[in-house]
Design a binder for these strands. Structure first.
Lengths: 383, 383
DNA sequence: CTGAAAGCGCTTACAG
DNA sequence: CTGAAAGCGCTTACAG
């Protein structure tokens, strides 16, 4: 079995490897001589498997030819290549990543900065990063920093960026600013954190369009106004949603009601819902995300307000679960996976082009999914 | 700012770095001479920053002393250490990970194998791995293989394991068997995938206890029997839940009804719910996980069966969202994050002990969370 | 199209 | 407690 990935040849022969790797010492005179020298001389660590020289010897070529075949680069005569590949397979050879990195200066590794990987957006975006990176022959090393506004993030990024990664993808950096992150100028970076858009090449959902679609949908149903339960106060993306929501209302000549402070979680929506349920004027609520919407719907139920009979509710994100909520949640779907893949492409672009353009932006479309949680307002409450 | 992590000294001085790293060529006669030689001789890649020799020269010590301070190992006189640290800070020195790995044979990196990182269990477990690994000074490199039963997983694992990681954590390997994975014997491994328990050291939730608690809870409420909507057919963990459920019923002298095939998603629960709603004998359903339970509840609602008035429903996992479902979901909570941390400890154990004990197992307790989706059966349906 | 030699930046025994 | 030298396994120009 031979697998060629991005110019890299991985020669498996997994089943045969044990026998081979045991056949290390004294395999031929050259190796033996070297072993003797080593054992009397300077330190030597246990070999992990066959080296490029073992392959070269078996194939009857030089090390560089093996290297060329291994990297998939340069011109090698087909017959020679064939022989080398066969030798690799037979020995179960795999290039030593450390040696390759030390010499070439690149690990073929992309770093990913997250804040809480278990969150919907972060895990889905990371999934997109992983798929695209593996397709392009890159490994991914992941870092989770719960409080990116502290020195913790600098330590983490510093350890990553110094000679260990070829690029950094910022999935979520919380309250950390561009200045706080202080990333090396030469490091390729891509971000989906909207607080950093404009500083680094970015790929993220078209939030403004999504919010406008949500508010527009509720207004089109005849609601006089649309209330909003916000995301957390420190989130830039929550702030974007607030301003897009209020602007859309203003366009319609509607003075936006006071936004209700929320968060990203169902508990936040529940709390906000208990508050909004007391106000009989509330007929339509746009929630910061789906979790918040589901928590809010629960509070409405508890307070005897029907959804969507009395109150229409719309979420944001498009959680699969939201389709099975009671009622099924109308929401704005965003494609996190695609944002993740796009960021990998932005990194590769920078590695190739040797420059970082902070204004480069890939916008992923958002989409209104109409389901059962939105309807025209109760009689007498429309406009 | 100096940060000492697991014997590793990371010296930041981030703000000062740019000035230093520009001061590369011809900084002193040694460097100049070397530059000249290099530029006429063999290939040379751009340096990424100050080297161990730069620090040694500035501190007036030898390279090894710098190495000792850098690794936090060996005896160094406090005054010398101080001088070295100051030099590191001044130059913005960070050890080259590739060189260190090449020489020492270890990357200080743990590999993580996942199948779909966006799933609840996988992302939470991974979060635990990330937190523990970073605490212990390890980096984490993540791989996502959607179809681990194919050759894809061998390619991925092969690329990881060959000289690039110090250990492998299997969060989820789907249908891939122990034989299929064919991991090198010397590689430290820990798994939370129940299909691999017994082959590798493992850390996972006490599923059997959780299932017994779920079934026991419903029986204690007076239900005559408990139906079960299963996870996917190819999941070992789903199979474990099926057998624990049927055994618990049998202990009570109850012949288990036919399990209803499900999956891990709300859509699966919805489908199963439509089927079970038709059977008036069904008064209690234990679902493979919370998503399935929520989908099933929705189907029950649609068919006019009240939860828990007509049918009690219990989930598994303990999604935060489940608390805000309608009704709030009774469930079995498992601590994925803790399983992740425990696996890192299992890896570190093996690195230290140089051996892998497939029977070593860390069991994480599960816990019944009683909420509103379970109640005594309707009058006349109890036992 | 192929090979001989240098060197990437560390760590490892060893000697003092 | 400290230093001089070897070498980890590759890749990179360069010469043929």
């Amino acid at each position: 079995m031979r697998v060629q990935i991005n110019g890299d040849v991985d020669t498996h022969g997994l089943s045969r490897r044990p026998a081979t790797s045991r056949a290390r010492p004294g395999k031929d005179s050259t190796r033996t001589a070297r072993d003797i020298v080593s054992s009397m001389g300077a330190g030597r660590i246990g070999r992990q498997g066959p080296s490029i020289d073992d392959v070269a010897r078996l194939a009857g070529v030089s090390g560089q030819t093996v290297s060329r075949v291994s990297r998939g680069s340069g011109k090698v005569r087909p017959a020679t290549r064939e022989r080398v590949l066969r030798a690799m397979e037979q020995l179960g050879y795999a290039p030593n990543r450390a040696a390759r990195a030390l010499r070439s200066g690149s690990f073929n590794l992309i770093g990913v900065l997250t804040q809480q990987i278990q969150r919907t957006g972060e895990s889905r975006t990371t999934s997109g990063v992983l798929d695209a990176a593996s397709r392009l022959g890159y490994g991914v090393t992941l870092v989770q920093v719960a409080h990116p506004e502290t020195d913790e993030v600098r330590t983490a990024v510093y350890r990553l960026s110094h000679q260990a990664i070829d690029g950094l993808i910022i999935v979520q950096a919380g309250k950390a600013s561009y200045e706080h992150l202080a990333l090396p100028a030469g490091l390729p970076v891509a971000s989906s954190d909207s607080a950093l858009t404009g500083y680094y090449p970015s790929a993220s959902a078209d939030q403004v369009h999504g919010v406008r679609a949500a508010v527009g949908h509720l207004l089109a149903l005849g609601h006089r106004t649309v209330h909003h339960v916000t995301g957390p106060a420190d989130s830039q993306s929550a702030a974007t949603r607030i301003s897009a929501w209020s602007r859309r209302l203003e366009e319609e000549g509607i003075a936006p009601p006071a936004p209700v402070p929320g968060g990203w979680e169902a508990a936040d929506g529940y709390r906000a819902g208990l508050e909004l349920a007391q106000d009989p004027q509330v007929s339509a609520v746009f929630c910061a995300n789906d979790e918040v919407a589901l928590g809010l719907i629960r509070a409405m139920h508890e307070r005897g307000r029907r959804v969507p009979g009395d109150v229409s509710v719309i979420g944001f994100d498009g959680l699969p679960l939201a389709e099975y909520a009671f009622p099924p949640l109308t929401t704005i779907r965003q494609d996190f996976h695609r944002a993740g893949s796009a960021m990998v492409e932005l990194i590769v672009e920078q590695i190739a082009g040797k420059s970082r353009d902070g204004t480069r932006r890939i916008v992923i479309p958002t989409e209104l999914i109409e389901r059962g949680s939105t309807a025209p307002p109760p009689a007498g409450q429309g406009r």
